[in-house]
Design a binder for these strands. Structure first.
Lengths: 210, 210
DNA sequence: TTTCATCTACTGGTTTACCAGTATTTTTTC
DNA sequence: GAAAAAATACTGGTAAACCAGTAGATGAAA
């Protein structure tokens, strides 16, 4: 059990979230909010001259990638704990933020109690994932861990789609029928279990397949 | 000038390409082909027990990402030179393979003479980019180096698109009109200079914006 | 207070993607 | 040589994206 006062900072671009979190934590004397920031630059400047035990980090910052920021902060301050806050229930995002060193992932619909407990558990070295998040990750494991097998032709089609070519353009480039391109596209979407091309490209790039 | 015989291996999944390259190089006694491989595993196994000066690497391998493979090989064998072969004239790909350590990028429409000269130049420590490739990269520099500025709302829309949501679904999720979503989508495509969503997501992920 | 940026939403389209099924040929694997 | 996988291509659709322009409200910045 952590005996010293837990010093945290909040990084979220919604001032109302700051208010809300601070109001919750105000009733818990064992946790102290050293600062609240709405942008990464201010937060990083603060950390240059102050130390904090834990950061509540909204990964959905407007001008920077919160997932990348998490990685950067962990590299700079190895011992700091980071709890990611987000509305996202997308498995790739959760997995990535954890991979980048976050100690936990809390959805923004979490209760006050959950938030307090998450902060304490993080300081105890635990990984914080509530049931909902764990379920999301459980289904994620199969998909993130292994890329689906795609054939050489499918890969060519995938790369063309990523370049923004239409079905007609791809057909012309590869000397095949547009209907063949459409069949390959459909097969790719089935293999990646998505319903459209943007999601397909998103996953394929995340998996470093293109 | 390199005085010793240049020992190279070829990694390309088209046997005809092997034949072609070997036929070209056969007339140049100063270059020796130690092996030709159609998959990465065989090539890596070969390199465990043999050393080569240079690899002609098709980045469009069916079962592995040639760009990532380039990085892996350079990490394992720092001194080896890699010349990427491809039909791609897409700037992101060229830039990435160079960033991953390739000494040069040769389009598959290059002449015999160009290939020979590229191999020699690589051994001399030069960066091999013919005029066509340099032009492609020149236009690329502005785009790859800096992500366009997008607003907080645009970023939300971008993330939703990447998740595969339709315009109607995004509208419902963000409590705005589908027509508003369409306007944001259009603005994003203008900022990224693309014509469709797959290309948008491709660039956005490459730039780590989502 | 004014100007600029952002967000919102509409008209009136055209183009393209996605859906589900089916089937033949070619190539690869055993 | 047979079986399986891959590649090809079609029917008959519906759904969604993309295009170009226009414009008002709100919030932020100067």
């Amino acid at each position: 059990m952590y005996s010293k006062k837990i010093e945290i900072i909040i990084l979220d671009d919604h001032p109302l979230v700051h208010e809300g979190i601070q109001h919750i934590l105000q009733q818990h004397s064992e946790i102290e909010v050293l600062g609240s920031f709405i942008n990464a630059e201010d937060a990083l400047n603060f950390l240059k001259e102050n130390s904090a035990d834990l950061i509540l980090l909204d990964i959905n910052l407007p001008d920077i990638n919160g997932i990348e920021l998490c990685k950067t902060i962990k590299q700079l301050y190895h011992g700091i704990k980071i709890i990611a806050l987000s509305n996202h229930n997308e498995r790739l995002i959760i997995a990535k933020i954890l991979q980048n060193g976050a100690s936990g992932y809390v959805l923004k619909n979490a209760s006050s109690k959950e938030l307090i407990q998450a902060i304490k558990d993080a300081m105890d070295g635990k990984l914080i994932l509530n049931d909902e998040v764990q379920k999301i990750l459980a289904t994620a494991n199969n998909e993130i861990a292994e890329a689906p097998h795609i054939t050489r032709r499918e890969k060519e089609i995938l790369q063309c789609i990523a370049q923004g070519l239409t079905t007609a353009q791809i057909a012309e480039k590869l000397f095949i029928s547009p209907l063949t391109v459409e069949t390959h596209r459909r097969n790719l979407m089935q293999k990646f279990e998505v319903n459209n091309a943007p999601a397909l490209i998103h996953i394929a790039v995340e998996l470093k397949m293109i």
